[in-house]
């Protein structure tokens, strides 16, 4: 259970880099970009727990993200909840949605792309519902009033948002690290590698998968809460649209699914890629995204295991 010295060193450097980053990055644009990158890493880590370690590929992680964002927004705006209390309920709600979705789909043995499409459909159901429901602001979306102050989970100085998302990501990584080393983590990987064999060994695969999706849902809703506090706005397309589901799986798959730092490395790489293409080709609409797509294919061609494959290949 102990870290090897190389790992410990790498972790120390990583922690030092991220903790000291605001000291060197004075540009609020760059700080914002790092904040967004860490946010994608958190969202990716939640996907990674279920999809990377558990092998249950979700196409609809927006269903958890949106639940986190919407529950905390609705509780604050419509029921006068304090932001922190709202956040706590929102995270619980995200876990609950995860448990429900898992119970329904895993009970029927849905696997692989079937499971993926089912998660997609659930996200769509939620999107349509919040867009039609008065309580969730229907087509207007939810606008959280500007109330700066830590008591309201809003900060005028965006450095605090950066540290907040850094802390949340660190906590998520710690959770995944702990799971990786726990008996539960071993079960989870066993389910991914060969569910029938795992079942034969006496592992309650259904229970393992439901616990995984519950944790994953709760983590994604943490990201949702962060988003809504940061941007103070969410609507049905942001919350439950397919774009956020794609964001959730992109970072871990590029970085390396089923690895602790895959989502973070993937998010950083994607952020850098998107910045570089915009910098080089941002003049004409679409060309930068075009280049982004091409580079994505190039990465996949040469690093099929994600960027973490680079490190593992050497080790």
């Amino acid at each position: 259970m102990r870290l090897r010295s190389g790992q410990a060193g790498a972790l120390f450097v990583l922690a030092a880099f991220f903790l000291l980053l605001p000291q060197f990055v004075t540009s609020s644009y760059w700080l914002g970009l790092w904040t967004l990158t860490l946010f994608y890493a958190l969202l990716g880590q939640s996907w990674n727990l279920l999809g990377g370690y558990g092998g249950q590929v979700s196409f609809g992680h927006a269903v958890f993200f949106g639940t986190g964002a919407y529950v905390s927004a609705v509780l604050q705006v419509k029921f006068g909840f304090n932001a922190w209390a709202g956040a706590a309920v929102a995270v619980a709600a995200g876990g609950l949605v995860g448990a429900f979705l898992g119970a329904v789909s895993f009970r029927y043995g849905l696997r692989g792309s079937y499971f993926a499409l089912v998660t997609l459909a659930f996200a769509e159901v939620f999107r349509v519902l919040v867009n039609s429901w008065e309580l969730t602001g229907s087509g207007f979306g939810m606008l959280i009033p500007l109330r700066p102050g830590a008591a309201h989970l809003q900060f005028t100085d965006r450095t605090w948002f950066y540290y907040l998302i850094l802390a949340l990501l660190a906590a998520a990584c710690a959770l995944v690290w702990w799971i990786e080393r726990s008996r539960f983590g071993a079960y989870l990987v066993a389910v991914r590698e060969n569910e029938d064999a795992a079942q034969a060994l006496g592992i309650d695969c259904f229970r393992v998968k439901v616990v995984a999706i519950t944790l994953s849902g709760a983590l994604a809703s943490v990201a949702g809460v962060f988003y809504v506090q940061y941007f103070l706005f969410v609507d049905s397309h942001i919350g439950y649209g397919p774009a956020m589901s794609v964001n959730a799986l992109l970072a871990p798959l590029i970085g390396g699914a089923g690895t602790l730092f895959g989502p973070l490395i993937g998010a950083v790489a994607l952020g850098a890629l998107s910045e570089l293409t915009t910098l080089a080709l941002g003049k004409t609409p679409g060309v930068n995204l075009l280049a982004f797509g091409v580079l994505l294919l190039v990465i996949l061609r040469f690093l099929p295991n994600g960027l973490m494959g680079l490190f593992r290949g050497r080790a």
Binding site: G51, V57, G112, S113, V246, L249, L250, L253, I254, A257, T284, P285, G286, V287, L289, L290, F292, G293, V294, L296, L297, L300, P304
Partner: peptide, 25 residues
Amino acid sequence: SFGRDTNVLLVTLGLSIIFDNLALY
């Protein structure tokens, strides 16, 4: 994609980004 499901997903996703933005351009 080397025949891997998750990589196929990413490749087709990448292709759709390329096609859509090529059309836009």
